[in-house]
Amino acid sequence: MDIILIALGLLCLIIGFLGSFLPALPGPPVSWLALLLLHFTDKVQYCTQFLVITAIVVLIVAVLDYYIPIYGTKKLGGTAYGQRGATVGLIVGLFLGPLGIILGPFVGAFIGELIHDNKDVKKAIRSGWGAFLGFIAGTVMKMAVCIVFAFYFIKDWLVSYF
């Protein structure tokens, strides 16, 4: 049974890492599932505190992943229109595949700023750029969490089984 749990855990790590930048897959939650699967083996037992803390990290990352593009828009001078546009762009981008996810917040913030003030194209571009940078920051954050979870999984698996 342990072999099946470990194999499923390794698969979850791979899917989780891919999910850090592919929109259809939830990266950190799937990587966390790998830790939970390893916990159910006979030789690796994580304490409840570790599992709860890592689950909280996953929830925080999931929330921040949607908030960071909006924050980036605001930080680079975007108005509420740009922030709402970045949100709408992110949601619409979810249905347009990987390119939509990447460009959605930028285009949404850009259009939102143009709706607010169609004469300030420079500000609209800056707002869109902030949304794009926020998206990249969120992706890096998700990848980092997945890498840390993979580290714990592999370290604890190797130490316990070999």
Rank of each mutant, 00 (worst) to 15 (best):
L37Q: 11
G104L: 10
D117G: 11
I70T: 00
V30F: 14
P23G: 14
L103S: 12
G93S: 12
I56V: 15
F153S: 03
L22Q: 07
V88E: 02
G89T: 08
V159H: 02
F162V: 08
V30S: 14
G19E: 13
P26G: 13
C47F: 08
G16Q: 12
F153C: 05
K142M: 11
G82T: 03
A62Y: 01
Y71V: 09
K155F: 10
V63P: 01
G100K: 06
L33K: 05
S127Y: 08
F95D: 07
A131M: 10
I70S: 00
D42S: 15
P26V: 10
I91W: 05
A80Q: 06
T73M: 04
Y46H: 13
F50G: 01
I102P: 07
V30C: 09
Y67N: 00
F21N: 07
M143H: 06
Y161Q: 03
P23M: 07
F21C: 08
N118A: 13
V121K: 15
L25W: 10
Y46A: 12
C12I: 02
A34C: 09
L96Q: 05
I4V: 15
L90D: 01
K119N: 13
P23Q: 14
L10K: 02
T87S: 10
L51P: 04
L38R: 13
P69Q: 00
D2R: 05
T73D: 03
I60E: 00
I53C: 04
G19Y: 12
V121M: 14
F17M: 14
D65R: 03
G27R: 14
Y161A: 05
W129S: 14
A150D: 03
W32N: 02
V148G: 00
I4C: 04
I60P: 02
A144N: 04
I147F: 08
D2L: 04
L13H: 02
